[in-house]
Simulated assay, not measured.
Amino acid sequence: MPKSRIRKKKDDVSASGRKNDAKKNDATSDKDKKKQTKIDMGSGRNWVAPLMLALFVIGLAWIVVFYVTQGSLPVDALGNWNIVVGFGFIAAGFVVSTQWK
């Protein structure tokens, strides 16, 4: 029957009331034999979240500025296409968000 990796058995207590030191030493040597696996949480994609949030904020700010200034800012020549530009920044933020792990 395979050994359980989840639950460990308690050390046996001998008749004198002391723990069996031989089993304790065996347990520590088993731990030394096992290799620890390092998990890399960074994965080199630290730029994704700040860029995504920046694109969302720029797109929202673009649309808000357009409405508040009644179409004279951010680019007067674009007219109502400024809304499309703002939503373009927001859509780019969603595209970048697919790279987030």
Rank of each mutant, 00 (worst) to 15 (best):
M1Y: 14
P2K: 02
P2V: 08
P2Y: 05
K3P: 02
K3N: 07
S4R: 09
I6S: 07
I6M: 09
I6Q: 06
I6D: 12
I6N: 09
I6T: 07
D11L: 07
D12N: 03
D12M: 07
D12Q: 06
V13H: 09
V13G: 07
S14M: 10
R18H: 14
R18I: 12
K19I: 14
K19M: 11
K19L: 13
N20L: 13
D21A: 12
D21R: 13
K23F: 11
K23T: 15
K23L: 14
K24Y: 05
N25M: 11
A27V: 10
A27M: 10
T28I: 08
T28G: 00
K31S: 12
K31G: 09
K31P: 01
K31T: 11
D32H: 12
K33M: 10
K33P: 04
K34M: 13
K34S: 12
Q36G: 12
I39L: 13
D40S: 14
D40H: 15
M41D: 13
G42Q: 10
G42I: 08
S43Q: 15
S43W: 11
S43A: 14
G44C: 06
R45L: 09
R45Y: 09
N46Q: 13
W47L: 04
W47A: 06
V48P: 00
V48R: 00
V48D: 01
A49M: 09
A49T: 09
P50G: 08
P50L: 09
L51Y: 01
L51V: 04
L53R: 05
L55Q: 00
V57G: 00
I58V: 12
G59W: 10
W62A: 03
V64F: 06
V64R: 03
V64S: 07
V65G: 08
V65H: 07
T69Y: 07
Q70F: 10
S72H: 09
S72C: 09
L73D: 07
L73T: 07
L73W: 02
P74S: 02
V75Q: 10
N80T: 13
W81Q: 06
W81C: 04
N82S: 03
I83N: 04
I83C: 02
I83W: 01
G86Y: 04
F87T: 03
G88I: 02
G88R: 05
F89L: 01
F89H: 00
I90V: 11
A92H: 04
A92V: 02
A92F: 03
G93F: 01
G93D: 00
G93M: 00
V95R: 05
V96I: 10
S97N: 08
S97M: 05
S97L: 07
S97Y: 09
T98W: 10
T98L: 15
W100G: 10
W100V: 08
